[in-house]
Design a binder for these strands. Sequence first.
DNA 1: TCCATTTAATTTGTACACGATTAATTAGTG
DNA 2: CACTAATTAATCGTGTACAAATTAAATGGA
Lengths: 166, 166
Amino acid sequence: MTTKTETMTRQAPAQDAGAFPVPRLDQQLCFALYSASGLMTKLYRPLLDPLGLTYPQYLAMLALWQHSPSTIGELGAALGLDSATLTPLIKRMEAGGLVTRRRDSADERRVLVEPTAKGEALRARMKDVQEGLSCAMPLERAELKALHGTLTRLVAGLREATADQD
Amino acid sequence: MTTKTETMTRQAPAQDAGAFPVPRLDQQLCFALYSASGLMTKLYRPLLDPLGLTYPQYLAMLALWQHSPSTIGELGAALGLDSATLTPLIKRMEAGGLVTRRRDSADERRVLVEPTAKGEALRARMKDVQEGLSCAMPLERAELKALHGTLTRLVAGLREATADQD
DNA sequence: TCCATTTAATTTGTACACGATTAATTAGTG
DNA sequence: CACTAATTAATCGTGTACAAATTAAATGGA
């Protein structure tokens, strides 16, 4: 009588009465962020492919257009990536002719990264990327604005909360 | 007189009058999502490490606790990942003793994934993970709720917008 | 029944992403 | 000035992540 029901259904197994309910995937904020981020990358891909850029490389170009030359460390701070990720990423961009890398003569530890003429030329094509993207965005302009604001505060808070793990 | 000013400053270069302004990193929704997602992963790491789970593996366990056995394809649909990502991920979880893999005898193409006793045992430790996490979240409960709602609609819309790229 | 098509998972190749370590350089202190 | 401490990239190892090609199995006609 007690062991009889243990092989009934697999769908709601072993949930003791009063036990902590296992969090559902669709109720997890982290999963919504994870999914949204991945889908945005997928949305950018066809727009960036013809430019010879991956999505992280596109972010790096945005940072460099804003401020260059930049060191690996500065790029890392701007993008939230560490040198183990950026060093090979920048080297691939260098191989693609989009940026130059050189040691800072004033401090030989630093590596200065700067767009090439070819890299600068991509600036002119950003209009199409932005337009192509905003057309595909499923939310209202005001909603996107509000979402961006909330995310910005979330990111600022998370940076503090994870600051110890560097 | 014309070529004299071309080496002035590096900070605001070559922005033709009326040209499309290069989008700023901190104004890009995609970058906010990218940063937030990465920081959430970093926030989970110390909580999941003692369980022997990476963050994507944690998501896979959530999906399996919700519904198992699941095929690779079902997990892929739930998580938004393709089989080329999931196959090795699940194999690592199998090597860690958290799940079992077996071919479906009714359809030998399918692989059924199911938590082991050890995997089921992790359920009991999810309370600590959830609590440890929500303590570190920098936003108000209501704000998080609203953010989750907006993201859910964004994800649904992006799924449609990217549905052709499968 | 046979075979073309479809489906499911795996494999291969490329590109992130991070923790931990290392190597080179610079800064600081006595 | 010597020598240690701190800083900066690069490297190594492991784990995602996806496109494209491959293999194996099931399905749907002719």
